[in-house]
């Protein structure tokens, strides 16, 4: 019949209207700043730097090898390595900046890092009144403890810790049997971490 579809549609919208007052399934809005949905473990947006221990500077895993800087497609990473008094390169970044206004959250820096020093963060409330200086994150903004990494990505962090422990153990063995034949492969192949979601 002509007009049947209109009546059906109106019944449906009426059910939506009244259902939104008593049926939680029809009223799914989360009042964001007051209510929050817990983030999924695999949620990620911008990179941060992991440090071990308590000291932000000393504990940084980053050795300023600049691989991530070279690989970064939008070139949002800027690294200057530390140098000692003689001008010798140190395994430590002096400057480590990420311009999150340019970063596209591709995670390539995380994939290429041989030292598991850079990981993806879950922080998303980054809006600011100054889009030039406040969106350029410096080393002290980026450095976050390993505990934080465990908090946001527990599965992945556990895998990474196990991997690092194994490597450290291998390195210690190598140091112990220094005169003997090189037992283990010296190079570190970053294993693909398969995060469990």
């Amino acid at each position: 019949m002509l007009g049947e579809g209109i009546i059906k549609g109106m019944v449906e919208t009426a059910r939506n209207f009244f259902g939104s007052y008593h049926d939680p399934a029809r009223f799914v809005t989360i009042q964001y700043p007051e209510q929050r949905v817990p983030l999924k473990e695999n949620n990620r947006n911008f990179p941060f730097l992991v440090f071990d221990g308590a000291d932000t500077e000393k504990g940084l895993r980053c050795v300023a090898c600049k691989i991530c800087e070279k690989e970064c497609p939008p070139q949002c990473i800027y690294i200057v390595p530390e140098r000692d008094a003689h001008g010798k390169l140190q395994k430590h970044p002096k400057i480590f900046d990420i311009d999150i206004s340019t970063c596209m959250s591709c995670q390539i820096c995380v994939e290429v890092c041989p030292f598991d020093a850079i990981k993806m963060d879950q922080e998303f409330e980054l809006s600011t009144g100054d889009r030039f200086s406040n969106l350029l994150l410096h080393k002290q903004d980026l450095a976050k403890p390993n505990d934080y990494y465990h908090k946001i990505h527990p599965t992945e962090a556990t895998l990474v810790d196990a991997q690092l422990a194994k490597e450290r153990q291998l390195a210690a063995q190598r140091k112990a049997g220094a005169g003997a034949a090189p037992a283990s492969p010296p190079k570190h192949a970053p294993e693909k971490l398969v995060p469990v979601g």
């Binding site: 919208t13 939506n16 209207f17 259902g19 939104s20 007052y21 029809r26 009223f27 799914v28 809005t29 009042q31």
Partner: peptide, 13 residues
């Protein structure tokens, strides 16, 4: 508000 409720959202609040 009404359109919001019809579309399962609260509307301006």
């Amino acid at each position: 508000k009404g359109l919001g409720r019809i579309q399962n959202r609260p509307g301006p609040n």
